[in-house]
């Protein structure tokens, strides 16, 4: 990503899905530190404690606090509102897409079953957020 030193916040409860993201980022030589949280609540806490992430990769179906709820919190918070959030989910449900975009997500990606396809998804995300300017 553009800001090399800034962490990427991954909010994902599935262990293998998290491994997939880590592996794909490694394969793409993305060197940003990765902060992995397993639900929305923990992720909100980490936002307060850790460095401001350059991007948030967000799953929707999670225990305790789901993705949509987490999004509402983030977008309602002046300090976090401008962080780009990319939804990474299994849900192809129209309602989830509409809710996500109404809450101002920067992208919505369906997790492919095929790992190689997943790498391509991550490559696109990385390329886009390397080219795009961001508020520092």
């Amino acid at each position: 990503m553009r800001l090399n030193n800034k962490p990427i916040l991954l909010v994902e409860d599935d262990q293998v899905d998290a491994m997939t993201v880590k592996r794909a980022l490694k394969e793409l030589h993305v060197t940003n530190p990765l902060v992995h949280m397993e639900n929305g609540e923990d992720a909100l806490q980490s936002l307060a404690l850790q460095d401001r992430p350059c991007i948030i990769l967000l799953d929707l179906n999670m225990p305790r606090m789901g993705g949509i709820e987490f999004l509402k919190e983030v977008k309602g918070h002046a300090a976090y509102r401008s962080i780009p959030v990319v939804v990474l989910t299994t849900s192809a449900e129209q309602k989830d897409k509409v809710d996500s975009f109404e809450l101002g997500v920067a992208g919505y990606m369906a997790k492919p079953v095929d790992y190689r396809q997943f790498v391509e998804v991550m490559r696109s995300i990385n390329t886009y957020w390397t080219i795009s300017e961001m508020p520092s």
Binding site: D17, T20, N61, K111, D114, Y115
Partner: peptide, 17 residues
């Protein structure tokens, strides 16, 4: 369908790795 996909994806990924 939705909940079947998550473990399936894990099986697919792990196998590929």
């Amino acid at each position: 369908s939705h909940d079947l996909k998550a473990p399936l994806r894990a099986i697919g990924s792990l196998t590929q790795w």
